[in-house]
Each structure stands twice: as C-alpha cells, then as structure tokens.
Nucleic acid binder design. Sequence first.
DNA 1: GTCTAATATAAGCCATAGCTTATATCTGGA
DNA 2: TCCAGATATAAGCTATGGCTTATATTAGAC
Lengths: 110, 110
Amino acid sequence: MHAFDVLVDPVRRRILELLADGEHRSGRIVELIQTEFSISQSAVSQHLRVLRESGFATVQVDGARRIYSVDAAPMREVSDWLDRFRSFWEPKLSALDTEIARGKKDRRED
Amino acid sequence: MHAFDVLVDPVRRRILELLADGEHRSGRIVELIQTEFSISQSAVSQHLRVLRESGFATVQVDGARRIYSVDAAPMREVSDWLDRFRSFWEPKLSALDTEIARGKKDRRED
DNA sequence: GTCTAATATAAGCCATAGCTTATATCTGGA
DNA sequence: TCCAGATATAAGCTATGGCTTATATTAGAC
C-alpha cells in the first residue's frame, strides 16, 4: 500500500495530526474524531488498523487499552517524491540549502 | 479537491514526474503513459483534466496540440502538512536549518 | 471545403474504499 | 466467575473513481 493511499483519507490525516502532538489511547482518538466527523467507533478503529498495517502508527498494549503513537517513517516516501518538485516553489535555494532541505538523504533511484 | 486526492493516483503521479522534466504535449504523455500502464488515450486525457482542474498542470494551446506544464504550487499544501512530522525523521536539524527546510514560508493556520 | 490528426468529452460499467450494524475478543474489577 | 468497558473484526451496503467505447471538437493540410 502506497503512502498516498493512506494519507488520502481526511480522517486518517486528522488522526495522524492528533498523534503528532503525542500518543493517545484508542478511546480518546475515537472521541476526538467523532466530534469532527460523526463516524462510528468501528469506523475509527478501521482507520487505526490501516495506519498500523501501513506503518504510520504503532501500538502499545496497556491492558485492554491500546496506546497509539505516530511513526512518520513512511511519510519520508512522500517527502522524497515531493523533492523533485521542490525547486518549482523554492527556486532560490542554494545547492547547500537544498541539501539541508532534502535532509542530506542518500539519493535513490527515481 | 484536496491535493492528496490528486496525488493518490499512480498514473497522475507519473504524469507529474514526466512534466517535472519539462513540458510535453498531450500526445507524448499518452504515449509514455501507455507503455507503462496500458490505458486508453481517453483515460490519460481524463487524468490530464484532473491535473488541470486541480491546478497541478497548466496548458498552452498550440493549434490542435496542448502543451502541458507542471505547476507545483498545490504541492506546497502537501509539503506544509508534512512539516509537522518532519521532526520525527529529521530530529537533528537546528532551528535555523528547520527554517531553511521549511523554505522560510509564512507560518499559516494549522 | 473535406479529411485526418490531435485531443477532449459523454455515458455507462465495475471494483473497491469507507461506512454501518452486529458481534467477537480481551481485560480488570466486584 | 460473571460482568462491563475497551477495542477489534465480520459482513454487507453504497457511493464513487477510474476505466472503456463511442463520439464530439478543433485545427491544419491538401
């Protein structure tokens, strides 16, 4: 599953935003999402599953609770893809700045 | 239409990659995409329409030809969204480097 | 003016993503 | 041990995105 397939859903993006501010247990995520999207507990749980299985979130089991944390590693795939377009909106970066902006990552195959 | 809705499709991403290397006329894009995806001229044209209408591509009319160019402006929306997660995979950037990485853009509402 | 090339659009089909309701699986407490 | 809370899963429905074929539109060549 491609990173974009995960991030295309607004509920999943919102969950990731919540997790970016710190870990949350499932029930808390359900509460917060429901105030914004009016979907069921089941629907949120299914989104959490997608995030888990795609590597965007990790879970710690705490008894009956599940504590979710973000794992941003797969977002790098998106960021790397965007890199090839970065010069279009940041045309004035020096070569050095560009290296910094690219996080000094290894260049990979296109 | 959200930027992610446009970028989620692999054919559209590939078209944007082609356009990142320089403008192309519609027919050329159709040829190149067809070697990789085996879809019809119509299908490619429909993808080009999505790219046009969402602002990711611009067109110059040249007689019966349409010359497509990339417009990366809407990608900034994606890049900005990713920014909040950047610290997770680039934890060692200094505050200054972070500013550079963010392109010194104005901070906008989250 | 007619033909053909280049591109776009219309209409309809189908697979699937995201939802719902119902139910299963754990866990800790009384 | 039984129950309630917390979470996940199963099954089924529906809307929609991306495709196809067929056709429209436009421009230049002759």
